[in-house]
Amino acid sequence: MPVDPQFPRAAAPVLQASALAKSFKTPHGSLPVLDGVSLDIEAGRFVSIRGASGAGKTTLLQILGGLDRADSGELHWNGERVSGRGNAFLANRRARWLGYVFQAYHLVPELTALENVALAGRIAGRPRRETNTDASALLERVGLSGRMTHLPGQLSGGECQRVALARALVNHPRLILADEPTGNLDEHTGEEIMALLLELTKAENVALILVTHNIAFANLASQTLVLRHGKLHDETNGDNPENRSV
């Protein structure tokens, strides 16, 4: 894959979405989920998204991360137009500058903690030695230096999510999409993971879009959005939900 000489364009916002719409075809007709979502994320920013179950938060994250395509609207990553580009382009960019964290960890059960983290580097096509160094450094930073050769089945939920955090960061991404990363964890562990996530993204100046049901976590963000009726509403600083639409 030839590298775009202007990639990444430092000056451009990490992510720009405008008027994204998405509906799913169901046996009972079309189910609109997103209906004109616009969003700009500057480098290093932290944005949270809340919303009722089924509101379309996961769908939105998948579209923003190029795992799914919007029916209409425009999406730019680092100033590069994404909409209408091929799957290979999406896969390449996803691997190189995007990190995902999921509620269900999604670790490969046959790989050790270190290998799970290194796998993301390998998929991004980075040299072996380099990814291994990065992977073990990150695992150390998330506090798992003693668990590198453990399989996911030998780790606790919180430890699994730490591995997933390390994996999301191993390729030095510019944006992390986190879909309810604390959803499967108890309150205390959730707080630990959240703190770690914020610390790591801040240290590397990585932008973060966090989907969460936890209002306290959501309010840590510089911008708090709520997805309702297919649109994003800005509720930063406890604004009245009905006032501002982004």
């Binding site: 799957n87 290979a88 190189r96 995902y100 999604h106 796998l119 998929i123």
Partner: peptide
């Protein structure tokens, strides 16, 4: 689930 994950990590079809 792993197939989805590998896709999310940038694995090509």
């Amino acid at each position: 689930r792993e197939i989805g994950l590998l896709g999310a990590l940038g694995g090509r079809p």
